[in-house]
Structures are given as structure tokens and as C-alpha cells.
Amino acid sequence: MAEYTPKERLARALTGQPVDRMPAISVTQTGTVDQMEASGAFWPEANEDAEKMAALAEAGHNVVGFEAVRVPFDITAEAEFFGCEIKPGTREQQPSVIGHVISNTEDIEKFKGYSLDHGRIGVVCDAIRILADKYGDELPVMGSMIGPFSLAQHLNGDDWFMAIFTDEAFGLALMEFTTDFCVAYAKKMVENGADTMVIIDPTASAQLIGAEFYEKFVVPYHAKIVDAMHEADVPVVLHICGDTTKGLALMESSGVDAISVDQNVDVATAVGNVDKAVIVGNLDPVNVLWNQTPEVVKEESQKVLDAGVGLLAPGCGIVSKTPTENLQAMVEMAKSHKY
């Protein structure tokens, strides 16, 4: 079979075309302390400076061996853009959203008419540009962003889960608003050179909110992002945390090309629950990738591969203290796997 560049290989694997072997990638965050030390680009600076962000992303390829580069490393830039209070990250920890800015429909109006040219989302786009200029012919350049449901939760706070139950009009209005933003932001990442889009929507889980709410408040909005990306020939990977086994068919109905599942999901069951979406995952980032040896990582990888996973990857964001040799063991297992 023909030889492919990593870029071609991933694009083909995500769109169901035959490839020579499995691409070795992580659709969730890749930054680790080892890579920071090797590249000299440390958190939290690498979250705020485009050169450093690109340098740490690049370490995922040069140090670990991932066959892609991916930014950013957190999911707070979007909420920060709208003025949510952020608890700054540290060298080992990602920043988190601690304040919320939208509590009703009138609040949404105040935020309309924004320009995408300010804030850290611009830094992400600049980092993508740097990576695309350097690697764009060879490697996939993955852009990642928070999904519209989780962004709505960041903007509205935990009351969001009740709002979708008690105030449907507000809930839908906020979903429209966050989705419009996500579409515009994703397009901007693509303009800057991203060729693969990852939507991280951790709290948009059918397990948490149930199938009915998921169908109404999540599917149509994910579909809008997917449609916009497909127009630009960019495949979309959706990551949602928790046991998504029963929600997979619904998740797929938005049109996403691949679904990343966490370690609570049985991969064989997941593969059976989707039509053609590529199942990505699902090594436990803590109990396997961080806390085990390369030998155990290989054994666990083999189980996931045997279960029929489409792309072997971490089940969630890589823990910053994860040893490089463990990630390399996973990469090696993926690379030596033929479909």
C-alpha cells in the first residue's frame, strides 16, 4: 500500500479511507513537564504566548513522537474571551474558569458584536499559523476548542444545568450564541492553517443530562460546527468525558467524523454503537499513562487495539507529569498497528 505523509494518513483515517497503518496522535491535550523542559516552553507562559505555545506543541512531535501538532493545552481561552474570571494555571496545572458572566437572555445581547481579534484565542490562531508554516505540508495541525454546551456552562455557571430544564428559551438562545462563536473561531483556526478540528465538550454528556436534553441542546449545535468545518474539508473529532456508551449514536448524529471516548467506555461496545464514526481512545491518563510502566502501557494499548479502536490515544487530556517513555510506548503501539 502507498506511503502517506502523517497529514494524509490522519485525514484518510478520519474519513474512512484505507491507510497503510494507524496514525499516532492525541486529540486531547499533549503538554507535559518533560516536553516543557525539552522545549523551554513552560506552562503557564505556553498558554499565553504564540511562539511558546507552538514550541510546546511541536515537542509533542519531536520529543514524544506524535504524528501531529496540536494547540492549545486548555479549554478556558473561550470563556476568558467573554470576560469570565480565570484562575491562572501553573507549570503543572491548566487554568480554570471561576467566574461567570451571563445569567439571562439580556446578558447575551450585551456580548453580541464581538471581534475575534483580541484575547488568547488570537494567540492560539497565531500558534497555529507558526505550526502550519513549519509543518503544514507534513503533519496534521490540530486546532482544539471547547464545545458550545460546555462554553455555555462556563458563561452561565453550574446553574446552566438547571437553566436547560427551567428556561428553555434562554438555554437555546445561549446555545445559539456560543455556537456562533465556536463556528467563527473554528473558521479562524482553519484560515490560519488548522486542518483537523477537535471539539472538547466535557459536560455535554448524555449521561449527565439525558438523551432528550442532549438531542435538543447539543446535537443541532455540534452539527452547525461540523457543517462549517466540512465545507472547508476539515474533519471533526468530538471528545466528551465520562461513560458516553449510550450516547454515542446521538453524538454521531451531529455528523462528526470521529468520537474520542474516555477510559470509562468499553471500546468494543463503542465501536458497535456507531455507524461510521471513528472511535478514538481510550488509555486511562492517570492509572495507565501516568502511573504505569511502558510495558503496562503496551499491554493496555494492545487491549484497546484488539477491541477495534479506530485511533489509539489517551482517554482524556494527558497529565502533565506523564513520563515520555509511556507516551512513546503508546505511539509505538499505534504506529505498528495495521487495520
Binding site: 453550574d158 438547571m162 436547560i164 430544564f165 449527565l208 443530562i209 439525558g210 436534553f213 449510550k246
Partner: peptide, 13 residues
């Protein structure tokens, strides 16, 4: 799995 987080949060409230 008869009810979900939105309903639980309301009951807790």
C-alpha cells in the same frame, strides 16, 4: 437513568 442532572439539581435545590 430515568432522570438526569437538571432534575437532580432542582430536587437538591
Amino acid at each position: 437513568a430515568e432522570i438526569y442532572l437538571p432534575q437532580i439539581m432542582m430536587s437538591a435545590k
